[in-house]
């Protein structure tokens, strides 16, 4: 076999991602059509929530799944952007063309120093320092009453566009979230399959090797951190605009833990993993919380079973099953 043969062989391989994307595109089209086919308002609300948290989980996956950085403080940026949009809307303008980008920018800018410091540590210490920074954000939100409203939370004014109120109805907000989610998911996908994304995977697989290959690993880690925080910020903005309210709990460590769980249950390192995880966790939460107050117990058992039996999450299980079927099949 010559080099040329191998290259020809590699290029004739079917493009698997295309199939995945046609499925996702169909799903998005179905969700876009659903309100016209009589999707009830409460289901729309649930879908909005799932999309917001899917985006948050997708953004964490850039760090956790692709770069191998276990952040235990990702909710900080969700919270920062969530508060930022409220504060901007109150003090500067409610125009969404101002509030949305500015709030996301605030989250991204906060991620620069926090990330710059945090990436000096690795493993468990990285987990602890991101946790510490996130808790500092939480405490600030909780205690800085004049600005954040403290423990009571803060009312976020509704969005306007050129002076006219927009996104007032549930349905219009549903389409807005679906559109923003689609754009962000596509952007994130483009990022993780790019050369930059593959470099992140290299860092996850072997940091010493990447350094020896001439990569400035810290710079890449910081970039991943800021990218994750930026998209986490978009999720935070959507969340505030949807609830028209933000409370310190948005930045609490339990929120960070919940997103971490979503990514892990769905399958870290698989692009659709976090979406699956967010969907399952939120559906379980809605369904179970009306039957039992022991939601933590369910989550805990899910953790234990998952980490003992299926380390790569549900997406990993599906992939294994798929490969198994293909291997055995004709």
């Amino acid at each position: 076999m010559t080099v040329a043969d191998v290259i020809v062989q590699r290029r004739s391989k079917p493009f698997v991602a295309l199939r995945l994307w046609s499925v996702l595109a169909l799903m998005i089209a179905a969700f876009a059509a659903a309100p016209f086919l009589g999707m009830p308002q409460f289901v729309q609300a649930l879908v909005i929530e799932i999309l917001v948290f899917s985006l948050l989980a997708l953004s964490l996956n850039v760090l956790l799944g692709y770069t191998g950085l276990v952040s235990f403080g990702h909710a900080a940026f969700f919270g920062i952007a969530g508060y930022a949009i409220g504060i901007i809307a109150i003090h500067i303008s409610t125009d969404i063309l101002v509030t949305f980008p500015l709030a996301v920018l605030v989250a991204a800018l906060c991620a620069v120093p926090i990330g710059w410091l945090s990436i000096r540590l690795s493993g468990f210490y990285f987990l602890m320092i991101t946790f510490a920074f996130a808790q500092m954000v939480f405490v600030a939100a909780f205690r800085w009453k004049p600005v954040t409203g403290g423990s009571d939370g803060m009312i976020v004014p509704g969005a306007t566009l050129f002076g006219a109120p927009i996104l007032g109805s549930r349905e219009s907000f549903y389409f807005f979230v679906l559109a923003v989610f689609t754009v962000c998911a596509a952007l994130l996908y483009a990022i993780v399959v790019s050369r930059f994304g593959r470099t992140l995977v290299g860092i996850r697989e072997s940091t010493p090797r990447m350094r020896a290959l001439g990569y400035n690993v810290r710079r890449y880690k910081l970039a991943a951190f800021v990218v994750g925080a930026t998209f986490g910020g978009v999720a935070g903005v959507l969340n505030s605009l949807f609830n028209l309210f933000i409370a310190p709990e948005s930045a609490h460590w339990t929120q960070s833990a919940l997103v971490l769980v979503m990514v892990l249950i769905g399958g870290a390192g698989y692009f659709v993993g976090p979406i699956i995880g967010a969907t399952i966790v939120l559906l379980l939460q809605h369904w179970l919380s009306s039957y039992t107050e022991y939601w933590g117990l369910v989550l805990g058992i899910l953790f234990i079973v998952l980490i003992t039996g299926a380390r790569e999450g549900i997406a990993g299980l599906v992939m294994q099953g798929w490969n198994h079927l293909r291997g055995k099949g004709p």
Binding site: G296, L297, I301, F303, I304, T308
Partner: peptide
């Protein structure tokens, strides 16, 4: 794993 047990 240990966090799971903590919740349980």
């Amino acid at each position: 794993l240990t966090f799971g047990f903590a919740l349980v």
